[in-house]
Design a protein around this nucleic acid. Structure first.
Lengths: 341, 341
DNA sequence: AGCAGATAGGGAAACGGTTCCACATTCCGG
DNA sequence: CCGGAATGTGGAACCGTTTCCCTATCTGCT
């Protein structure tokens, strides 16, 4: 395997000059540069990133910590991050983080603590102080997308506002018996995505002078997936007596599950039940789901842009990042309609 | 940032001994080992993987090349790979490969050609000889999961057999008017996953003395996604006159799209239309989809095991890999029923 | 003519580990 | 009791880059 010394010898220059010629740093005569490049090309020279990062301390690699890859939101974010990173010449090292437990500790204490990544993007995961600290101590930037990380820059939609937007849509349609399919853990973790959506819902209901309707107090926790939504909706809609006329689901996948449950129970939609979700899932249009859209692919790209700036790789002319919440938009489709009288 | 020299000094030994004590290679007295470990612990020493791989040539990192992360099959495979790799102490570098184009070349020529990964797992992608060669020339193992890579070990289900299994299920139910929603490109690339499934279908039909039924010759290509299946099914089922009574869809996601299309067209299921897919998608049970299951998470784990063996990291007592096709299983649910007479 | 600054290039010292080789000691079997 | 093997440790070379520092030439300006 050819090393830079071989290139240098072939081009008749020193290693130092060869390095400068290839990396573009420092003064090198045009003619020399061309000779070196030709030599490198000829013997198929490829620089060793290990050797380079050993001396520069930069790895051109960022770690992405993510709890799922197979949920729509996370998959989209990951794809967005990947493309941006690739076009910036960076590698992406993936850490599929379990919610908690020894595996999780291992990721932080063993994998991320080493000097293999220049920065960390934590997607949809709530980091505790110790975890942030492990990264920060190595003075590597960390940024949170969706989840929370104490002391780190955060990129997220305003989940509470999004939930209010969805809820108010139902209220405007005249619904008064409204239930919420909340994300698992939303009751316990108030600052989590699920928690914020839940409280946005409760606030809007409260402001309208209403209380959640349906069995189990009108708020049922569901795993944030289609089967999760299905199971929870069956529970929520099980008693024909006190059925809600509308449901606000914590995510589109949960909403799909609820739609499926309604179908199974023979409830007509939307005349008998209106459903609104959050996400703007790829399938929402096809299923006619009213939802508050967000744009995870774009969020991923933004996170990368943010990280690049922190790493001093800001492309010139790029504007400053702001901490404004990310974009959302209510899209009304056929899954919601006016309340039956 | 403490280096191994600091640990050595603190423990009163040489760098060589410290290295041996921490890595567990070579002879070190128990007492010494403990002293070194204590010292490392005390000053928070963490070895630099770059330095290590510079001298050993091993990076403890494998590259995964994958065309999507947000399709069920790929997401599951990726999660399986990730967990296995993590528990083997390996990092996973993700390359989300565009189907073709300059980005794709860049991945191979720039990213994968460098010495940053010890091996490559290519998931669901058909590599050409040049691409395989780039990796092989660096004498890094490459293994294909799902897709094809000339000259590389391949892990895959028998797609043709799976398609036949699905088709024969429909035949046994008495269907004679059967259509196929094939994957995009299945006609052009006979050896691709889509191509094999298509030919498995055609073979079984042929063996039964039947020709595909429905508009467009009974075989319509669809993007391998739910919206893709929806659009293609609308086309296939558009003319009430020559409607098939059963559809074999190239994947479960396509099948879901077709189910949705049937619903939209007011076709009763399964009495008016039977549908069978391939995959064993997470949602298949909920939607009552008959399907030929495969187990992508397990496939990912297997791929990692295979790579570990090629890297000489076989855990003792693990058996030899075989090239037998991976497991599949027909699961009959409510989306298929006997042909109407 | 003299000089500062820009341009060009080389030698050598890092970076942080691993491993080869040499040397010393202990152990064990014949 | 002796020789070789097993065990334990240190010194130094090495992996492949980048970069610091030094020297040399060339430009343009006073």
């Amino acid at each position: 395997m050819p090393a830079i010394g071989d290139v240098a010898r072939l081009a008749g220059v020193s290693k130092a000059t060869a390095s400068r010629a290839l990396s573009g740093r420092g003064y090198v005569a045009d003619d020399t540069r061309r000779r070196v490049q030709a030599a490198a090309q000829r013997i198929g020279y490829i620089a060793s990133p290990d050797a380079a990062s050993l001396v520069t301390g930069r790895t051109k690699n960022v770690g992405v910590v993510i709890p799922f890859v197979n949920r729509w939101f996370f998959g989209e974010v990951l794809e967005g991050i990947e493309r941006s990173l690739l076009s910036a010449g960076y590698d992406l090292t993936l850490y599929n983080l379990a919610q908690t437990g020894p595996d999780r500790d291992r990721v932080f204490d063993f994998f991320l603590a080493r000097k293999r990544v220049d920065a960390v993007i934590a997607v949809g995961v709530d980091l505790d102080e110790r975890e942030v600290d492990v990264i920060a101590r190595r003075s590597k930037p960390i940024i949170a997308l969706g989840g929370t990380a104490p002391g780190a820059p955060r990129l997220a939609i305003d989940d509470r506002a999004a939930a209010s937007l969805a809820t108010e849509h139902l209220l405007k349609l005249g619904h008064t018996r409204i239930a919420h399919l909340a994300g698992a853990g939303s009751g316990a973790a108030a600052r989590s995505v699920q928690g914020l959506r839940r409280s946005g819902f409760l606030e809007s209901m409260d402001a309208a002078g209403l209380t959640p309707a349906g069995s189990a107090g009108g708020v049922v926790e569901a795993e944030m997936s289609l089967p999760g939504g299905y199971a929870a909706a069956l529970q929520l809609l099980g008693h024909p007596g006190d059925r809600p006329t509308a449901i606000f689901a914590a995510s589109d996948e949960v909403a799909f599950g609820a739609m499926r449950a309604a179908e199974r129970l023979g409830i007509a939609m939307p005349s008998g039940l209106s459903i609104v979700g959050i996400d703007g899932h790829e399938y929402a249009e096809l299923f006619g789901l009213t939802t508050v859209e967000q744009y995870p692919g774009d969020q991923g790209r933004r996170a990368v842009a943010r990280v690049m700036r922190l790493l001093g790789e800001a492309p010139d002319g790029s504007e400053e990042p702001d901490d404004a919440p990310l974009a959302t938009r209510l899209v009304v489709r056929s899954s919601t309609t006016a309340a039956p009288r």
